[in-house]
């Protein structure tokens, strides 16, 4: 492939939306209220919309006849490049909210930079997605505040979710080799520069929500280079089921 770095770079972005969208999609029909159910599905739909834009572009770059679906559903587990945070399960609503909140704050600042990409397709996608993600961040932040401030029980559950997912936050700011090349080319975003602001905004919001910022400095990593948690395999089993069971068919 001529543009392998760019291809990998796009997958690195898109896989996050794909896996998060899939996780949010699991909740459709099972939310705490009808209104919340509808809101969560909207987020899932936004994320899958983003995935399609990215993968259609990636398919064009690959230029070997693969489609958006081939890229989304026919890779091996080690070939998915999403961050570990994205694949964490919906243990309860607090975990769902914590996962999205911790990702949304990053996602917004990432897209903000990606808009300046020298790659016009990527900057156009970022320009469209950032409005969606701005709302996602508002939605998840509001819920962190509600659950953190709400009752004793909700405060505990929210704190537990933040504590458990905290270990996956640092990875958001790691760079792969493809990332570094892309940054040098003016295509990619230097995520290391987003880190300080991220922890500042997250800390401020947690504080507002009567929650403690975890102090742990031990972080998990690996998603970006395809080394995932055990959760991803099961998620992929669902995601890929049809394409694997009935290969080479159109739907």
């Amino acid at each position: 492939m001529k543009n392998e770095n760019l291809y990998n770079y796009i997958l690195g972005i898109a896989d996050n939306s794909l896996i998060l969208g899939q996780r949010m999609g699991e909740l459709c029909g099972h939310g705490p209220t009808l209104e919340t159910d509808i809101a969560c599905t909207n987020i899932s739909l936004d994320l899958f919309g983003q995935v399609r834009s990215y993968f259609q572009y990636a398919a064009k770059i690959a230029g070997d006849g693969r489609t958006e679906d081939d890229i989304a559903m026919l890779r091996k587990e080690r070939e998915y490049k999403n961050v570990l945070l994205a694949e964490q399960p919906n243990t309860n609503f607090a975990y769902t909210i914590a996962r999205h909140f911790l990702f949304d704050v990053y996602h917004f600042s990432f897209l903000n930079e990606l808009q300046k990409s020298s790659d016009l397709t990527l900057s156009a996608i970022a320009n469209k997605c950032i409005k969606e993600v701005s709302y996602h961040e508002r939605f998840s932040s509001d819920w962190v505040k509600r659950l953190g401030d709400g009752t004793e029980e909700s405060n505990q559950k929210m704190q537990e979710a933040i504590n458990d997912l905290w270990t996956y936050t640092d990875e958001l700011f790691h760079q792969t080799e493809a990332d570094k090349v892309m940054v040098e080319d003016g295509v990619g975003v230097d995520v290391t520069k987003l880190k300080d602001n991220y922890y500042k905004s997250v800390g401020e919001l947690l504080n507002k929500a009567r929650l403690n910022t975890p102090e742990s400095k031990w972080f998990q990593k690996g998603g970006k280079i395809g080394i995932h948690t055990e959760h991803l395999g099961y998620l992929l089993a669902d995601l890929q089921y049809m394409q694997r069971t009935y290969p080479n068919m159109e739907w």
Binding site: T33, L34, E35, T36, I38, A39, N42, Y135, R138, F139, D142, R146
Partner: peptide, 20 residues
């Protein structure tokens, strides 16, 4: 109409339910 715990949530829910 719809249900929400406060005005802010009512606005967000309205956005998600009635303007999708």
């Amino acid at each position: 109409s719809l249900h929400a715990s406060d005005a802010e949530m009512a606005l967000e829910n309205a956005r998600d339910v009635y303007t999708r």
